[in-house]
Design a protein around this nucleic acid. Sequence first.
DNA 1: CCCTCATTGGAATTGCCTTTCCAATAAGGC
DNA 2: GCCTTATTGGAAAGGCAATTCCAATGAGGG
Lengths: 219, 219
Amino acid sequence: MQTRSERTRGKAASTEGGRRTRDRILHAAAELMFQQGVAGTSIPDVQRRARASASQIYHYFGDKKGLTAAVIEYQSTVKLEQQRPLLDHLDSIDALRAWCEGAAVRLDAVHCAGGCEIGSLASELSDIDPSARLGLATGFAAWQNAIESGLARMRERGDLEADEDVSALAVTLLAAIQGGMLLSQVNRDATPYRRAVNVVIDHIADRVEAARGARLANP
Amino acid sequence: MQTRSERTRGKAASTEGGRRTRDRILHAAAELMFQQGVAGTSIPDVQRRARASASQIYHYFGDKKGLTAAVIEYQSTVKLEQQRPLLDHLDSIDALRAWCEGAAVRLDAVHCAGGCEIGSLASELSDIDPSARLGLATGFAAWQNAIESGLARMRERGDLEADEDVSALAVTLLAAIQGGMLLSQVNRDATPYRRAVNVVIDHIADRVEAARGARLANP
DNA sequence: CCCTCATTGGAATTGCCTTTCCAATAAGGC
DNA sequence: GCCTTATTGGAAAGGCAATTCCAATGAGGG
């Protein structure tokens, strides 16, 4: 299977050393683009951070756009997989709270620099790079899907009413996460994120209460 | 009163023509930076759009950072004033819905390009320009304040319970707006924005219902 | 061991962008 | 009408980034 960047112009690594170099470049680029934005990250920057030469970057990624596409895919795919165990169990209010609080702790740790890895890229690239936009939409869809699956499981289990629009709830939580992170990033304080996310989860908890009430009334 | 950019290096216009030139530049820069980002907007770009020479831009704004600061202040202050009549009456569920739907219609009109004027700037600049971050935080605070004031009036009026945390609700709505706009921008579809915002307003409406219930029980 | 191709280093090219500079013109106060 | 200051045009300096190129080195298969 080819990655997006390879589809464009880059070459896949065929030796062990090459693979390591490619990874080093990708990680360095992801980190820098997250911290300083895509436009604020130059190829020489990536060279320094990855201890690689220009030839290596252009060899594996074709051009800066290819590198950017690879970073988007990395952030969308790999980061998601890292959280897979957690993401597969977002089917209770407690799990949702714990998951969101985990992100809050991470925000605290970096003093709210950077916001969300995908969100930052999305804001910067959506309007100027159509193919990047596609990749980012896919990335967001994966997160939304993880939330929605958990809520759907709650619904099947009876924790939420049968006609509950779990899709809308999932979008709302994702939006609160993104918007909350943005507000926290600007204010250098994780409080806005925590408040926004908690209010939305409170709302979901209210729906769970409502479902319980309906269950007791109509047994 | 001096604007931020004048504090830095730019000069205020003292003739009528100068004021017009300055405004033309400011509007052009605001538009371009909104569409293509700050990094994606070059001084020559602004020159063309504003039909102004480089001298004029540097004369009135000092440097690109000064121009950016002026754009931030413009987006934070002027845009807010444009909505002042609406903003001063966000004290009912219907008013909140109408206001948010107005933004949705604007999103539809531009096919979801651009997202939020302040949000885009915030995401791009927060981490790389401390003074810009300050200005953006002020801008967000003004919007949050407008929402919070309306909710506080609802609380005073008894539409919300006396211990309701209107500040948290305001932050949540603002976060949903920002996050929703980002999701809509990426998906080129205003639906995510509408869903996120409506769920949050539904939640506020639930609180209003709860307050009404409490009022009836404890007259 | 040889041949081929992947990998790498580093210089050179090209182009654009920010910013400065100098000189010309216009505007307003006295 | 004269002088000072604001406004403007347009060229040019200086720097950095993206990308290309060429030659050298390394690795693996036969």
